[in-house]
């Protein structure tokens, strides 16, 4: 009986919880200091295993990418004119100097150093699942394991997922990953368990600079627009919001970002596209191919058989 129950329970469809206020993340990358507290808090709360103590060898970013065991990833985008951000990189010893300029003998000239600060910079962004309002992974999922929960966030039901991997192929942000441990797809749940108990997601709770902000989507968008206005007023006119509004090819994101450079600099797609956007046309073209093949075979078989 127990075996039968286990086999059949995935087919049970209890009524979903009543919809609640859509919640999400607003990540202000201008406030991120790269402390990785979000990564640690996420791993701790969700009991995610270590990824190993590995060095990428070309960045302070040693997490590398979002994965089945890293649901937050602080990307370090190191922008310097000649690749000499650190002494180690160009083989020289001594303290690192922005812009690769050597300090004058006898010590640092603070004014000179500050005046050169624009020669280079680090962009830091705590990346996460974008919780797309119409998510390609959710559309693709053939088992129905991926759903939008009552907070309108994208959630993978781990007891339903069978690890087919189609969601991995469908995600234009490279978020969803199949675990080598249990064979199922995993990603940020937006701390669904904490949300249900009225708590803030672990990463947002741990963020010391409020770079990661959690709340109702409408409020976050309003807050983000105000932040943009402030930054523009201060002269940071490159600041803009990524994913707060839908585009012609992609829906709005429930985890959206304030960026200072092109999206691709942050390894985000410049113009994301819902992969299923061409689906009807693809089916029509496949049908044309199938009918052409079938029709040609009928003609050939009839012509030669008589």
């Amino acid at each position: 009986m127990s075996l039968l129950k286990n086999l059949l329970y995935p087919f049970e469809r209890p009524a979903p919880p009543a919809a609640r206020t859509p919640m999400g993340f607003f990540t202000d990358t201008t406030l991120c200091i790269g402390c990785k507290a979000c990564e640690v808090a996420c791993k701790q709360w969700n009991q995610l295993p270590s990824d190993g103590f590995l060095w990428t060898g070309d960045s302070y970013d040693n997490t590398g990418t979002l994965s089945a065991t890293s649901w937050r990833h602080v990307a370090f985008i190191e922008q310097f004119p000649d690749g000499t951000a650190s002494g180690a990189r160009d083989g020289s010893s001594g303290p690192a100097v922005l812009g690769g300029t050597q300090p004058p003998s006898g010590g640092f000239d603070l004014d000179a150093l500050l005046s050169q600060a624009k020669d280079g910079r680090w962009l830091m962004m705590s990346d996460v699942c974008k919780h797309c309002s119409a998510a390609p992974c959710q559309i693709a999922c053939p088992t129905g394991a991926i759903i939008h929960n009552e907070f309108a966030d994208v959630y993978i039901q781990n007891d339903i997922c069978n690890g087919c991997g189609y969601c991995v192929a469908a995600c234009p942000f490279g978020v969803v990953t199949r675990s080598a441990i249990d064979g199922h797809a995993h990603k940020c749940t937006l701390c669904y368990d904490r949300q249900r108990d009225g708590l803030v997601p672990a990463c947002a709770k741990a963020c010391p600079t409020e770079s990661i902000q959690f709340g109702p989507i409408g409020e976050l968008r309003e807050r983000a627009r105000k932040r943009i206005a402030i930054l523009h007023q201060r002269g940071e006119t490159d600041a803009y919001l990524y994913g707060d509004q839908p585009t012609d090819t992609y829906p709005s994101l429930h985890a959206f970002f304030l960026l200072l450079d092109e999206p691709s600099r942050y390894r985000l797609p410049d113009n994301p596209e819902v992969p299923q956007i061409h689906l009807a046309g693809d089916y029509v073209r496949a049908g044309i191919g199938a009918l052409l093949m079938f029709g040609a075979a009928i003609v050939a078989m009839l012509a030669y058989a008589v």
Partner: peptide, 22 residues
């Protein structure tokens, strides 16, 4: 520094934006 004028991106692995399916 404005988009398009950003100097060479030094450091940070240039990984693809998407993951291959398993």
């Amino acid at each position: 520094m404005t988009p398009g004028q950003t100097p060479v991106v030094a450091g940070g692995r240039t990984t693809s934006q998407v993951k291959p399916p398993p």
